[in-house]
Amino acid sequence: MKIDLSINTNLARTILTAFIKSEITRADYSRAVINLSGGLDSALSLALTVEALGAENVLALRLPYRTSSPDSLEHAQLLVDQFKVRSETIDITPMVDPLFERDPQMSKTRKGNLMARARMIVLYDQSEVFKGLAVGTSNKTEILLGYSTQWGDSASAINPIGDLYKTQVRQLSQALGVPQPIIDKAPSADLWEGQTDEGELGFTYAEVDQLLYLLVDERYSPQECVEAGFDAKFVDVVVKRVRRSQFKRMQPPIAKLSNRTVGYDFLYLRDWGT
């Protein structure tokens, strides 16, 4: 079965840039801050944000750790140069190394989480310095799979790319002129040497995007996905991952006591009054 995830990039560009402009100005801001990892998602968020607000209103952050791949820094710099935004480079090594040193047995996952959260701390601090809102860089694939650190790389004030699968992020990035080396390289969180998303997840974005599209957008049952040609075990792994990561997509539940409780029956959009 052929599943075509391609999108009208002009339409996506119009909708997403206007979204960024609307939601930032309505919150009484005119500027934005973005963590540039050197990867594709943050490259696309940057490109869209520059188009929405103008380069002078965007601050790009490069936040390396001492073992980060030099490519990541370089690719982030490519973007800074191409989109002519101001940038800050802040090494997170002195933030996280003292924590790493407390436990020599610390797992890669813990270290990765600490780094992702350290970057979040810097992002929000620079948001205050620059008076700009933090623009998110999580795509739909990783949001659905829970492939992120809660309160880390998933933290933002608004997220323009959260309804685009990775495949679509790639297509839109191409249309927005993101440099080719960033589009072509293997996606990686670069939290440890040699890490790649696809290696860690155990499947490719091309495969999982198609499966998620059927499960989520087209409301296929897992069984129907198998009948459509997906491997049963793969379907099972992905379905479980989506279910078990639901907590990452929600605010923490509040135990209800009163007649009116935030999250249940105190319901207002964030754009309330604007």
Binding site: D4, S6, I7, N8, L11, A12, I15
Partner: peptide, 10 residues
């Protein structure tokens, strides 16, 4: 607006 695909309109 919803239903973005490769078509000209939503």
């Amino acid at each position: 607006g919803r239903g973005l695909n490769d078509k000209e309109k939503l």
